[in-house]
Amino acid sequence: MNQFTHINASGEANMVDVSAKAETVREARAEAFVHMAAETLELIVSGQHHKGDVFATARIAGIQAAKKTWDLIPLCHPCYFEVEVQLEAIPAENKVRIESCCKLAGKTGVEMEALTAASVAALTIYDMCKAVQKDMVISQVRLLEKTGGKSGHFKVEA
């Protein structure tokens, strides 16, 4: 069984030493969904939402959040990377799918940054739409794929 990397020999939370790790290209993709009423989704898609472009605001929020991950998650390393956040309305299922992708050449992965970007983009959609609908549901925040680093390739099975 794998050991927790953020726990030292005494069982205490510990920052992982990445100084001896090789720099490799690392990439992570994550997703999240926001489920809502058809009327709420239509306001977003049609651009009629009174707060403006919901997708543009959520995209920027996701990018900003990824850049601040090490401020939010105590044992994450600071890193500089490329980040993309894509949003897609799925009218047949009354939901929005958010996918984030973070990529860098470095000594530490970007899984937490990708997950943070997707999560905060979803929270931003909720924030912008809560005046219209309070019972939206954010679901299935998960890592889809990661490459690079010591642990190698991971991909969610379909």
Rank of each mutant, 00 (worst) to 15 (best):
R142N: 01
T147S: 15
Q133T: 04
L72N: 04
E113W: 13
I138L: 15
T69N: 05
Q133L: 03
A131R: 04
I60C: 12
E145M: 01
I60T: 14
P91Y: 01
V96T: 04
A58C: 11
I73G: 15
V96W: 00
M128C: 15
V83E: 06
E145Q: 04
C102S: 08
A121C: 14
K134Q: 12
F81D: 04
L87Q: 08
S139I: 09
D135A: 09
I138F: 06
E93Y: 09
E145I: 01
V141R: 10
E113I: 06
V132L: 04
F81H: 11
T69V: 06
S119L: 08
W70K: 00
E88R: 03
D127C: 08
E93G: 13
V141A: 07
K68M: 07
H153V: 11
D71T: 03
A92Y: 00
R59D: 00
V85Y: 12
V85F: 14
W70D: 01
V96S: 01
T147E: 12
V110D: 00
P78S: 04
G152Y: 14
K95C: 09
L72D: 02
K107R: 14
L123V: 03
A89D: 01
K95D: 08
K155I: 15
E99A: 08
Y126E: 05
A92S: 02
V96F: 00
A117S: 15
Q64W: 02
I73D: 10
E99K: 06
N94G: 10
A117T: 13
S119I: 08
T69A: 11
C76K: 03
I73Q: 13
I125N: 01
A118Y: 09
A114F: 09
V83W: 02
I90Y: 11
K103F: 06
N94E: 10
C101T: 13
G109S: 00
V141I: 15
Q140C: 09
K68Y: 03
V110Q: 02
H153A: 07
V132Y: 03
A114S: 11
G62T: 09
L123D: 02
N94H: 12
K103S: 07
I98S: 13
Q64G: 04
I98F: 14
K150I: 11
I63T: 00
T108N: 11
V110M: 02
T108E: 14
G149A: 11
T69S: 09
V96M: 03
Q133V: 02
C101H: 10
A105T: 15
A122I: 11
E82Y: 13
S119Q: 09
E111L: 07
Q64M: 07
Q133S: 02
A118V: 09
K103N: 06
L104N: 03
E93P: 15
Y80Q: 12
C102Q: 05
T116A: 00
M112I: 08
V83H: 04
P91F: 05
A58P: 15
F154R: 02
A105Q: 14
R142D: 00
E82W: 14
K155E: 13
A121P: 13
S119H: 11
V137L: 07
E99M: 12
F81E: 04
K107H: 10
K103L: 09
Y80N: 06
V120T: 06
V141N: 07
A92F: 00
G149M: 05
K134P: 14
M128N: 13
H153F: 12
A92N: 01
Q86G: 06
I125C: 02
M112P: 09
Q140F: 05
V83S: 03
Y126A: 06
L104H: 01
A61K: 01
K95F: 07
K146C: 12
K107A: 08
K107V: 08
V137W: 05
